[in-house]
């Protein structure tokens, strides 16, 4: 079946299978920042924004995205907030293997869009769906709080 959606800001037609998940559909559309890690909605490597909210694209049916807006990291590369998050993750040493980084970035972006003054706990809640086996989360959390501090709402 074919669905139409707004993919990274552009009206796009995607050829999908009825039971396919959004993760596979997006990788099929060359959105390689969307990573496969578990396909059970637990690891968050495939996190994208669906109508602005972070979702695990592996447990969202691709067909469900019809008529909606889907944003991947590829679609946010020019976004100033995303660029700050990327810079801070890189500078703080929060990128080790980097496989979970795109998903983490999407989750943190969604958090900071909704809350400019998150606490350590808020950041951890926002990252609760992004499993990282390399960092122990210390540096990703540090990086997120550092970006939040520049947004003027440090807490």
């Amino acid at each position: 079946m074919t669905i139409e959606l707004i993919l990274d800001g552009k009206r796009t037609a995607l050829e999908i299978l009825p039971g396919q998940n959004l993760l596979q559909a997006l990788r099929g559309a060359s959105r390689f920042s969307v990573k496969l890690g578990c396909e059970t909605g637990d690891c968050g490597s495939c996190t994208v924004l669906l109508d602005g909210e972070p979702v695990n694209s592996c447990v969202v049916a691709a067909a469900r995205a019809a008529g909606r807006s889907v944003t991947t990291l590829e679609g946010l590369l020019g976004d100033p907030l995303m660029q700050r998050l990327q810079r801070e993750l890189v500078d703080k040493g929060a990128v080790q293997c980097g496989y979970c980084s795109p998903g983490m970035l999407i989750s943190l972006y969604a958090l900071l869009k909704q809350d400019e003054a998150p606490t350590d706990r808020d950041v951890r809640e926002a990252l609760s769906g992004n499993l990282c086996r390399c960092t122990g989360y210390v540096k990703p959390v540090e990086a997120a709080l550092a970006v939040a501090a520049t947004l003027g709402g440090a807490s």
Binding site: G41, D42, P54, V55, N56, S107, S128
Partner: peptide, 9 residues
């Protein structure tokens, strides 16, 4: 219930 991205959908 679940994690943040799960709760979105």
């Amino acid at each position: 219930c679940g994690n943040r991205p799960v709760r979105s959908t």
